[in-house]
Nucleic acid binder design. Structure first.
Length: 641
RNA sequence: GGCGGUGUAGCUUAGUUGGUUAGAGCGUUCGGUUCAUACCCGAAAGGUCGGUGGUUCGACUCCACUCGCCGCUACCA
């Protein structure tokens, strides 16, 4: 009987269309899932979407849609991206699925009945006009930091999860199972920052918004999104806390591997295990908090305008180049860097020059010398055995790296084998053998070795570049494609007629691509700017007249004593001087600011910012993180209208 | 400011219990080859392992301090 392997990705949050950095996780998980299948495991691969929460409710409102319409649309897009990336999931779960919602309600009730969830009060300081809660530390002189008015302490009903009850058990489990959280740096982070200092009871219900799964025994409360989202790993399998769970569940739980981003390790290694403990279920065997794929200019985000989308990349470069390069650029534990340039470089060097060319020259020679006929004409010689030794070494290294999730290094080991093939050609000089009729048999063995080598390489590359893997095997025309066959060197059929060489990866011109990308980028930015041109609410002239703007000169600049991103400025208004706190430290040095003539909104209500009084606001143009002060040329103190 | 992470050749990086000349790929330079997608093969140059101090017979590896980046967070009127 095959051993099972249950692997999951985090479910994608459906507030926005994910970029390549988000998408990376699915490719990574897919590579692991494919590898495990190849190794003979009965793999169940789950992915999906996380569709509840206040943020989604707001996002939908902004677009004038209902929450359901919004998530339907995004979930469809996400599934489409998965499909276009060749992600071989077995199930795509949505947290708005009826089944999921019902089971989450049962889970919540089960834990409540057990006494691990209790009803309490969410206490906070509330500013009625602002409709906001604040913590003691957020207050400005005991007043609302937003409007300066009084706040009242309020209590709101809420449910809490007794995390502390399981703290010791969790800590013991993490320590007894060093591979439970990988990489180890993440494990230490969890223990030192969260678990050992003590877990506080977690508020697991919300009543301030409604887009979520209702608590079925208390109207007005919805289940906290993380309880909702994390449960997907068992609801997808048909877990039933009260009755009989589906066979899918009994077979697959506990999960063998949760692959998630390093930012949500906390939820998966603290909250999730405790939920499972409360339900008396076994814990997942491993949680891998993978690093982030950063665009060359930093973490990808829409506001920076350097966003790359998987589908665009696939369209431009083809699926396997994208899969290959994101997986290859990603280290095991540190963030990786990605850009179209790195893709092109990687594709040319590894895929075209090393792999593609090896296939091409091998098949070309086979046809030139034997009409494509494969034969093992003479016994292996020393050099052939050395190549076989290389195969054996590669296999061991590859499996070790794949088993420990060092994907990029596993890939490197296969490319290394392709390089060994290229070297083997240079060492055996088939074109010289071909000139000597008596060495025909020797030549056939050389080519047999090369084709067998390629067959093995193709099989090893399947988890990363499935389309190309198949294409290589097709060109060789071998039917022996199972992973186990590579343990026995020489599984390749004899008397095979290989196909004609077809380039699998054309070389790409970096300059050309960059040019194209830049042109496309420009267009995109333009479109974005046009789309973004929305004005704020109209105001009447009287409102405008209320603004008192004056020309001011900066006469001193000091660092804010308690906030490293703020300056404390003194400005001269002619008849008066003012102190203004401003967050422009990232954009201006002290020297640059000193003496500048700028525009100040002088009748803005004064406020203390981290203890320092600020009497007004400097006007600036801002685009993303780029902030430039408006400079005036008039006399200090002049009003502006 | 708080918490955490990180700093190895021009670039991207490996380094799993501290042990002889710190590995690799890309890039660069030189040489070779022609079966091949002007590709491949070989060689070379390039690192005071951020800095200082300590533990040790011995430190990239452990400890302390320090500098530089990054993330979360406070704060950006």
């Amino acid at each position: 009987m095959k051993e099972k392997f249950y692997i999951t990705t985090a479910i994608a949050y459906t507030s926005k269309i994910p970029h390549i950095g988000n998408t990376y996780e699915w490719i990574l998980s897919d590579a692991v899932a494919r590898y495990k299948r190849n190794r003979g495991y009965d793999v169940y691969f789950l992915t999906g979407t996380d569709e509840h929460g206040e943020k989604i409710e707001q996002e939908a409102k902004k677009e004038g849609k209902s929450a359901q319409e919004h998530v339907d649309l995004i979930a469809k897009e996400i599934q489409d991206i998965d499909d276009k990336l060749g992600v071989s999931y077995d199930q795509f779960i949505r947290t708005t699925d009826k089944k999921h919602k019902e089971i989450v309600q049962k889970i919540f009730r089960k834990i409540y009945e057990k006494g691990d969830i209790y009803k309490g009060f969410y206490e906070g300081l509330y500013c009625v006009p602002c409709e906001s809660f604040f913590m003691e530390s957020q207050l400005a002189d005991g007043m609302c930091p937003d409007c300066g008015r009084e706040v009242v302490s309020t209590k709101e009903d809420a449910y809490f999860f007794k995390l502390s009850k399981y703290q010791k058990r969790l800590e013991d489990h993490i320590e007894a199972n060093p591979d439970f959280i990988v990489p180890p740096s993440r494990k230490n982070e969890m223990l030192n920052n969260f678990i050992r200092p003590g877990l506080r009871d977690l508020c697991v219900s919300r009543s301030s918004f409604s887009w979520g799964i209702p608590v079925d025994f208390d109207e007005g409360h919805v289940v906290y999104v993380w309880i909702d989202a994390l449960s997907n790993y068992i609801t997808a399998l048909g877990y039933d806390p009260f009755g009989e769970s589906d066979e899918l569940f009994t077979k697959n739980w506990p999960a063998d591997l949760h692959i998630i981003g390093k930012d949500i390790v906390r939820f998966h290694t603290i909250y999730w295990p405790i939920i499972l403990m409360s339900l008396d279920l076994p814990l997942p065997k491993q949680v891998y908090g993978h690093p982030w794929l950063l665009s060359d200019s930093g973490k990808m985000s829409k506001s920076k305008g350097n966003t790359l989308y998987a589908r665009d990349l696939v369209k431009t470069f083809g699926l396997d180049r994208v899969r290959y390069s994101v997986l290859r650029e990603m280290p095991y534990s540190e963030d990786g860097h990605f850009s179209p340039e790195t893709l092109v470089r990687r594709s040319n060097s590894d895929l075209s020059n090393v792999l593609g060319n090896l296939l091409n020259r091998t098949l070309a020679m086979s046809h030139k010398y034997f009409g494509g006929q494969v034969k093992l004409g003479s016994p292996y010689e020393e050099i052939d055995l050395r190549l076989q030794e290389e195969v054996k070494k590669t296999l061991a290294l590859y499996e070790k790296k794949m088993d420990s999730l060092h994907i990029s290094e596993a890939m490197a080991s296969v490319i290394q084998l392709a390089k060994a093939g290229n070297k083997y050609i240079d060492d055996t000089t088939p074109w010289l053998l071909a000139k000597d009729e008596t060495k025909k048999d020797r030549l056939s063995t050389v080519l047999y070795s090369l084709i067998e080598n390629l067959r093995i390489i193709a099989i090893l590359l399947e988890p990363f570049i499935p389309e190309t893997s198949e294409e290589i095997l097709n060109q060789i025309r071998t039917q022996i494609r199972d992973y186990d066959s590579i343990y026995t060197y020489g599984s390749l059929e004899e008397d095979l007629i290989v196909g004609k060489a077809q380039p699998i990866f054309e070389r790409l011109d970096l300059d050309e691509i960059v040019e194209k990308e830049e042109a496309a980028e420009k267009e995109k930015v333009q479109v974005k700017e046009e789309a973004a041109f929305k004005t704020k609410e109209e105001i009447d002239f009287q409102t405008w007249e209320k603004l008192d703007l004056r020309v001011a000169k900066i006469i001193s600049v000091e660092d804010h004593p308690q906030a490293d991103r703020l300056y404390v400025l003194k400005v001269d208004l002619g008849q008066d001087q003012r102190q203004v706190v401003s967050g422009i430290k990232e954009n201006y040095t002290k020297e640059e600011l000193l003496g500048k003539t700028v525009v100040l909104l002088v009748n803005l209500k004064p406020i203390k910012l981290r203890g320092v009084l600020s009497q007004g606001m400097l006007l600036a143009e801002s685009k993303g993180k780029d902030v430039r002060l408006l400079e005036a040329s008039l006399k200090v103190g002049s009003p502006i209208s």
